[in-house]
Design a binder for these strands. Structure first.
Length: 271
DNA sequence: GTAAACCTGGCA
DNA sequence: TGCCAGGTTTAC
């Protein structure tokens, strides 16, 4: 579910409720996430005031006055919802955090591919390998992709989704970005011109910012930090639209599988 | 490189 | 019943 626009949406919607709040009661109902939560997890979180809530790639990072920070990844089906009047808990509500000034944050994740870690962000293995943020103009630009592409022959979609190359892009937005850039998902990065790479970078920022404006995609079940659905699923041009008309040229959208992930593209508009 | 692994739910 | 799903890691 959650790629950069969804995680950014969660961060923005949670900030007003979490900044300055102190977890007073942390209940771990199931510690078997992607990495098992340590026994001392609750104790390490309780009593510490949240000072900032940041996004890095698909990770959320809550910082306190001192290290360690609370690093969260929502995996495929993870959800982080704050509410003032909590509903009864369900079977996939794994972590429940109550705050000093009221309100409850519930981490829900049916598939348990999500992750929570207490670590120093500057030394965490989770964050250290991440590539630049897509909106970082200093680090993520056409030449960067162009130089990177010359080193190895690889499908451009594969490269876009590689978190070491650029952080935050997953399957939905990789498809949408490639449509916006007019590039086929299978195109080898080795055969992209510098201009292609510049177009790709522009398309990346354009698609991601449009998705953030619409508060992310709720293809099936994404909810933001206060339990609302996103709106970008209605604006998807190609993702999960096999056989439908291309919004530009009306040719049927095609589907193929790259690296075990479904890819959607217009055979006419993308070359 | 590619496949399978982790897990549950939804849908044909 | 089998396949597919927003992600990432590990093993051939």
């Amino acid at each position: 579910m959650p790629e950069l626009p969804e995680v950014e949406t969660v961060a923005r919607t949670l900030r007003p409720h979490l900044i300055g709040a102190v977890p007073v009661a942390v209940e771990v109902r199931n510690r078997n996430l992607r990495r098992p939560l340590p026994r001392r997890f609750a104790a390490l979180l309780e009593g510490r005031r949240i000072e900032t809530l940041q996004r890095r790639g698909k990770y959320l990072i809550a910082q306190f006055a001192e290290s360690p920070a609370w690093i969260i990844h929502l995996g495929m089906s993870g959800r982080l919802v704050f509410s003032l009047e909590p509903a009864p808990l369900g079977p996939h509500d794994h972590v429940v955090v109550r705050f000093d000034r009221g309100g409850t944050l519930v981490f829900t994740d049916p598939r348990r591919f999500g992750l929570m870690v207490l670590a120093d962000p500057s030394s965490s293995d989770l964050l250290s390998g991440l590539g630049p943020e897509p909106f970082d103009e200093e680090a993520f630009h056409g030449r960067y992709l162009f130089e990177l592409g010359r080193r190895r022959r690889r499908a451009v979609k594969d490269v876009l989704m590689d978190q070491r190359v650029v952080a935050g892009i997953g399957n939905i937005y990789a498809n949408e970005i490639l449509f916006a850039a007019g590039l086929r998902p299978r195109r080898s990065v080795a055969r992209l011109t510098l201009r292609d790479c510049e177009t790709l970078v522009r398309a990346t920022r354009c698609v991601l910012s449009e998705a953030i404006e619409h508060r992310g995609s709720s293809v099936s079940d994404f909810l933001d930090g206060v339990g609302r659905r996103g709106g970008y699923q209605w604006r998807r041009r190609v993702y999960d639209r096999e056989g439908e008309e291309c919004p530009r040229c009306r040719m049927p959208i095609k589907k193929l599988v790259i690296g075990q992930r479904s890819s959607f593209y217009c055979p006419n508009c993308q070359r």
